[in-house]
Computed example of a mutant assay.
Amino acid sequence: MSANIDTFENRLSSNATAIEALLDKLLSSEVLSDEITRPERLRAAMHYAVLNGGKRLRPFLVVEATALFGGDREAALRVGAALECVHCYSLVHDDLPAMDDDDLRRGKPTAHIAFDEATAILAGDSLLTYAFDIIASTQGALAESSKVALVLALSRAAGVGGMAGGQALDLAAEKQSPDEQGIVTLQAMKTGALIRFACEAGAIIAGTPANDRARLRLFGEKIGLAFQLADDVLDLTADAATMGKATGKDASRGKGTLVGLRGLAWVEATLNRLVCEAEELLAPYGERGKVLADAARFVANRKS
């Protein structure tokens, strides 16, 4: 492993520690103003679903994209925590028997196994709602106009035209395999939309000009596709112990993937191209873009 990747992974780990400390506080039993109470079993399920491991890549991208433009780190951490709540809600619901019916997530029992189905559904509902609470209540350097922009961008990334819609397409793909463009669309929605938001959010937090926001949005789209391509490869080649979840499920359910359609050699070439395109987008920022460039390489080359 190169020194650059070692340094990057240390930074990723450091950011994860900061995000997890904030999430632990946000998901405590402390009752906020205008809340009546926090039912303990529901709160515990939310805490379990969020703080059960993971690389915290999405909040990392928020923090580092914000840092690229010299934006406020505390605001970035809170927006990153909100995004992680949305991501983890989606995992809780994806794992349900009515969806992917998984028993294992990050090497531990899924939320509906550890608690029960009804509690898992409510935990997901509550995490999604709480995400927008976290953004709206963020104090400090985040302007009100930025909060509105973040809420709108996250809503679009998470909803019917983004992640949730992508899950609907994914379920439909079990009955009829989509063509190549259909797979690209599905993956851009289910996986790519939240990664796109993570990168674009940094520009919003920092209050950058529109061209910077568009550049970071496109960067997020590139690495979002790379993330899913790498995930498809791992689903074929890695074992459940390494991944912390069941593998080989796409093939067993007859779902089409770009790996299945195009083969591993094409995917590897595409990953290399996407990393190069992502680096080119960061070129105007010089050395300041190095961490995000390392992130693009990490996403494409990850082993779990």
Rank of each mutant, 00 (worst) to 15 (best):
Asp100Pro: 05
Leu150Pro: 01
Arg297Pro: 13
Val259Pro: 10
Ala210Arg: 09
Ala18Arg: 14
Ala76Phe: 04
Ala45Ile: 11
Asp212Thr: 01
Pro59Thr: 00
Thr37Tyr: 12
Ala283Cys: 09
Ile134Val: 15
Gly254Cys: 04
Met99Tyr: 06
Ala65Ile: 02
Asn52Asp: 11
Gly71Gln: 07
Pro39Asp: 07
Asp6Pro: 05
Thr185Glu: 12
Ala246Ser: 11
Gly182Ser: 10
Asp94Ser: 07
Arg105Pro: 06
Ala67Asp: 14
Glu268Lys: 15
Gly162Cys: 07
Arg78His: 13
Leu61Gly: 02
Ala45Asn: 06
Ile205Gln: 08
Ser304Gly: 07
Asp235Gly: 10
Leu281Ser: 03
Leu186Cys: 09
Leu171Arg: 10
Leu264Pro: 06
Leu169Met: 15
Gly54Arg: 02
Asp102Lys: 03
Glu200Ile: 07
Lys55Asp: 05
Leu216Ala: 11
Gly286Asn: 09
Gly161Arg: 14
Leu22Ile: 04
Leu171Ala: 13
Ala210His: 06
Thr66Trp: 03
Phe132Pro: 10
Leu127Ala: 10
Gly286Trp: 04
Lys255Thr: 04
Ala98Thr: 09
Gly202Leu: 01
Glu268Cys: 11
Thr138Asn: 04
Val86Tyr: 03
Ser2Phe: 09
Gly71Val: 01
Val151Tyr: 12
Glu277Leu: 13
Thr129Gln: 09
Arg217Ala: 15
Gly263Phe: 06
Gly140Leu: 03
Glu74Ala: 11
Ala300Lys: 04
Ala201Phe: 08
Ile5Pro: 00
His112Ala: 07
Gly140Ala: 11
Arg262Cys: 13
Tyr285Ile: 03
Gly254Ala: 02
Arg156His: 12
Ala203Leu: 04
Ala18Asn: 08
Thr257His: 08
Glu221Val: 12
Arg213His: 11
Ile195Arg: 00
Gln176Tyr: 03
Lys245Cys: 02
Glu279Phe: 10
Arg156Asp: 14
Met1Arg: 08
Tyr285Phe: 14
Ala295Tyr: 11
Asp34Tyr: 14
Arg262Leu: 13
Asp72Asn: 13
Glu64Asp: 09
Ala241Tyr: 05
Ala98Phe: 04
Met99Glu: 09
Gly140Gln: 09
Met99Gln: 10
Glu174Gln: 15
Ile113Leu: 15
Ala300His: 06
Leu32Ile: 07
Gln139Ile: 10
Cys276Tyr: 04
Arg156Phe: 04
Val160His: 08
Val79His: 00
Ala76Trp: 03
Ala188Gln: 11
Ala82Lys: 01
Val275Asp: 01
Ala206Pro: 13
Leu61Asp: 01
Thr37Met: 14
Arg156Asn: 12
Val299Gln: 00
Ile204Gln: 05
Asp6Ser: 11
Arg56Ile: 00
Arg215Cys: 13
Arg58Tyr: 03
Gly107Tyr: 05
Met46Asp: 02
Met163Leu: 15
Glu200Gln: 15
Val148Ala: 13
Phe219Thr: 00
Val62Pro: 05
Met243His: 08
Arg43Glu: 08
Phe227Asn: 01
Val62Ser: 02
Asp250Phe: 02
Val79Ser: 00
Ala173Thr: 07
Gly248Ile: 07
Ala123Asn: 02
Glu221Trp: 00
Ala193Met: 05
Pro109Arg: 11
Leu271Ala: 08
Gly80Cys: 04
Ile121Ala: 01
Leu292Lys: 05
Gly224Pro: 00
Val267Gln: 15
Leu128Ser: 14
Leu154Tyr: 08
Ser137Gln: 14
Cys199Pro: 09
Ala153Tyr: 10
Glu174Ala: 12
Phe298Ile: 01
Gly107Cys: 07
